[in-house]
């Protein structure tokens, strides 16, 4: 992928209007050229993903949540379904 505002827009589903585009592209370029220095860092072949601290488990016990509360915070409901645009 190129560092191309249109391609990135399409991938992240962020469309820019003309006035925004100028400013955001400028901002993107400034930030990217600032960050590019990181590319030259040599990394080892060993895994480098940092494990967050903490313990990670939950017993397999079901607890029901009040689903009506959630639906109340949603819009475009149809017969309890979420009405959404469809893919082509």
């Amino acid at each position: 992928m190129k560092f191309d505002a249109d391609e990135i827009s399409n991938m992240s589903l962020i469309t820019l209007n003309r006035s925004e585009k100028k400013e955001i592209v400028k901002r993107l370029n400034a930030l990217k050229s600032y960050l590019d220095a990181i590319n030259s860092v040599e990394t080892p072949s060993s895994p480098i993903i940092l494990a967050p601290e903490g313990i990670n488990e939950r017993a397999d016990e079901p607890i029901a949540f009040d689903s009506d509360k959630i639906l109340a915070s949603f819009h475009t409901i149809k017969n309890r379904y979420i009405k959404a645009p469809r893919t082509l």
């Binding site: 949603f74 979420i82 959404a84 645009p85 469809r86 893919t87 082509l88």
Partner: peptide, 22 residues
């Protein structure tokens, strides 16, 4: 789709989502 500026269900997925995300 669920909250925020309504993604228009009469449009296609990508253009509706992109519109909301403006």
């Amino acid at each position: 789709v669920r909250y925020g500026p309504v993604a228009d269900p009469s449009r296609d997925w990508k253009s509706a989502i992109s519109e909301s995300r403006t």
